[in-house]
Design a protein around this nucleic acid. Structure first.
Lengths: 254, 254
DNA sequence: CTTAAAATTCCACATTGTGGAATTATTTCA
DNA sequence: TGAAATAATTCCACAATGTGGAATTTTAAG
């Protein structure tokens, strides 16, 4: 049930989304000309849509006339109620783990074939892994993703493999179906999953799943550290925190 | 139909924004019927626009068919580059302050007549002030807001007072023009500002301004604490952090 | 100061979005 | 459980809405 048939019907909205994506792709305010080229829209069309986005505060204009994303997005993104309690429940545990273990703690949710970094707590030390909230990573290159795949079962893993072709992000990425299936199933059995530099060389993760009242997987909790700092003792800590969060979310095992 | 036609606006985009606002106003997934009533749109029209928003991931549907805001908003909101470096530069200082002082540190930016909470770092202790990132507060009830008003000058303060009527949030809110002007000007002179339960009873803040290369005010940094825990020593700490952040942003005083 | 390039406005046109009505799915309650 | 009520979704004829090329204005470059 992962692929949803979503046929878009309204042209302007697709184009508005295109424009905002294009703006977001840059790290500085973008000129109209660039946006036109980037999206393939006629300048006048892009201009008109941008004006409308501006009047709704989805887009702003800086002093040099460049376009940048607007505060409305920040405002709306904080009303994502789906997971408001998930975030609220998890944050204290995440802070505690972060303080004690001294590494970045991530909260991720699944969407289709990717996990989205939904919240993070980073330690106050020079070097640490810094995931960008809102960014995405394919399921098969993350600890939490492999747990989610494992839970979905072998059929779903095969289907996922066919859909995505298991692109390799590093030399450690599990790019063959058999290896991925093994890893997912082992992870499920153990109740946690490792990522051994499979998404990025140098970064090692440990992940666990969070469950809610219904017993559904609600999200995943993970710790990301420079690989040489990762400790096996953390597995137990993370599992414990995950279980407590799940309990707070109303999950009653058994 | 009684709208003032100020600018070229695209109807569908206005309506899409209306719908997302309406969804955001609720704390649970919303039904189509409700959205139709809330926005005054015909069900079929609302439905069509929502489908388009869904296919662009601005909106999602939960298992019961209710509409909720989508992950695209989270993704885009984290690409607000206007302040990407502001956030990056400030966060380590915010963490350090939060660790050392044990209270919530906020990063705010101005937009029109409000400040927007743009980033926060909260301490790991039972009771602390928890601002919601993305939420807004009128300038005259916040420490940083009063500094921004003061910097804009007395004319702007008067104009602001006329526009907003200085609504009182608590019995301490500065609701008269003269008191507000005094507070703003004193704040500017001192280089910091206090909020003595002016936004919420029980909460006391200290705020300072952040400047960037151009010398423009880029944002504000503040500490929010239960009023009885607030310490005068923090003023110096906050000012020092603010100055260092400004220096990192390229500001050269004098 | 001149020229070039980009941004903005204009406008005739038909594509696109509209909303009432019809159909289908879901919920309510007897 | 089934029938009535309510909500969700699809359909479609129509014209209002958004379109993009060309004209105009503004800004940047030489």
């Amino acid at each position: 049930m992962t692929d949803v048939k979503t046929e878009s019907r309204i042209q302007v909205i697709d184009r508005a989304a295109l424009l905002m994506d294009a703006i977001g792709r840059y790290s500085k305010p973008v000129k109209l000309k660039t946006l036109g080229a980037e999206t393939g829209l006629a300048p006048s069309t892009a201009y008109r849509i941008l004006q409308s986005l501006i009047s709704n505060r989805f887009v702003e204009r800086d002093s040099n006339g460049g376009y940048r994303l607007g505060q409305k997005l920040l405002q709306l993104s904080n009303r994502l109620h789906s997971d408001i309690d998930l975030r609220g429940v998890s944050l204290p545990y995440m802070r505690e783990l972060c303080d004690r273990l001294g590494e970045t703690i991530n909260l991720t949710i699944r969407e289709g074939d990717v996990v989205i970094y939904f919240e993070k707590v980073t330690p106050n030390r020079m070097m640490h892994v810094n995931q960008i909230v809102g960014s995405r990573a394919p399921l098969h290159v993350t600890a939490v993703g492999k747990l989610m795949l494992g839970l979905a079962g072998e059929d779903e893993i095969e289907s996922y493999a066919r859909r995505t072709n298991l692109p390799a992000y590093t030399r450690n990425t599990l790019s063959s179906l058999s290896k991925l299936e093994d890893a997912c199933m082992t992870s499920i059995r153990q109740g946690y999953s490792l990522d051994n530099e499979e998404a990025e060389i140098g970064v090692g993760c440990i992940g666990v799943l969070l469950f809610e009242k219904s017993g559904n997987v609600s999200a995943g909790l993970s710790i990301s550290a420079p690989i040489e700092r990762r400790k096996n003792e953390w597995i137990g800590e993370l599992k414990k925190a995950g279980e407590e969060i799940s309990r707070h979310l109303g999950y009653r095992p058994g």
